[in-house]
Simulated assay, not measured.
Amino acid sequence: MKLSTVFKLTVAASALSVAAMASAAPVCTKLPPAKWLSQAQMKAKIAKMGYRDIKVFQVSGSCYEIYAHTKDGKRAEVYFNPVTGAVIQNNVD
């Protein structure tokens, strides 16, 4: 096999891996967005939970997702059920 073909295959495989990781958000709800808490309501709930310095607040699939710090200063990526506000997945550094 030519080196350029191997390189192209490696790049293609890497791109597929990145796409798979990007779509790896958990399933948080099956209810439509009309049933979700508003972003303002969710941000208030998140603040009461002790998360601070929210860098990112976004919709990720069927979840609200944040990048923030915990009350003890650790970095966190957290997925919430947008209907109940419950934590579905919490990745803390």
Rank of each mutant, 00 (worst) to 15 (best):
P33Q: 13
H69Y: 09
P32E: 11
G85D: 04
D93M: 04
F80P: 02
V87P: 01
T5G: 04
G85W: 02
I88V: 15
R52C: 01
A24E: 09
A34D: 06
R75D: 09
A44R: 09
E65Y: 13
A76P: 01
Q89H: 13
F80Y: 14
I46L: 04
W36H: 09
S60A: 15
S23F: 14
S17T: 12
V6F: 07
P26R: 14
K48P: 04
L9H: 00
S14A: 13
I66P: 02
K8H: 06
V27R: 08
S62I: 10
S17M: 15
A44H: 09
G85S: 06
K43I: 10
G73R: 03
T10C: 11
V83W: 01
L3Y: 12
G61H: 13
Y79P: 01
F80E: 07
A19G: 08
L16R: 03
R52W: 03
K43V: 12
I46A: 01
C63D: 00
V18T: 09
L37T: 07
S23K: 15
K55F: 05
K74R: 11
V56T: 06
V18A: 05
L16M: 10
K30E: 15
L37W: 04
V92P: 01
V59T: 13
A40E: 15
T70Q: 01
G61N: 12
M49L: 15
K30V: 14
L37R: 11
I66G: 02
I66N: 00
G85R: 05
K30P: 06
K45W: 08
L3W: 12
T5H: 09
K45C: 09
K45M: 12
A86I: 05
L37G: 03
K74N: 06
A34H: 00
V87L: 05
R75E: 08
T10F: 13
P32T: 11
F7N: 03
A22C: 07
P32G: 12
F7G: 02
M21H: 11
T10N: 01
S38T: 15
S14G: 14
F80M: 08
R52M: 04
K71A: 06
F7L: 15
V59P: 02
K30D: 15
Q58I: 07
W36A: 07
Q41V: 09
A34M: 05
P32C: 14
I66Q: 01
M49V: 13
V56R: 06
N90E: 15
V87E: 02
A22R: 10
A22T: 11
Y64V: 07
S14C: 13
Q58N: 06
V6S: 09
N81P: 05
K2C: 12
Q89V: 10
K55T: 04
S14V: 12
A34C: 01
Q58P: 00
C63H: 10
S38I: 11
H69K: 13
T29P: 00
M49S: 10
M21K: 09
I54A: 03
Y51K: 02
S14N: 09
A13M: 08
I46E: 05
Q41S: 12
N90F: 12
L37P: 02
M21R: 08
V11L: 08
L9C: 02
P82N: 14
D72G: 04
I66R: 02
A47P: 04
K35G: 04
P26C: 15
S4M: 11
I54S: 01
A24Q: 13
V18I: 14
D72I: 10
L16H: 06
V56P: 01
M49W: 05
V56H: 01
V11N: 04
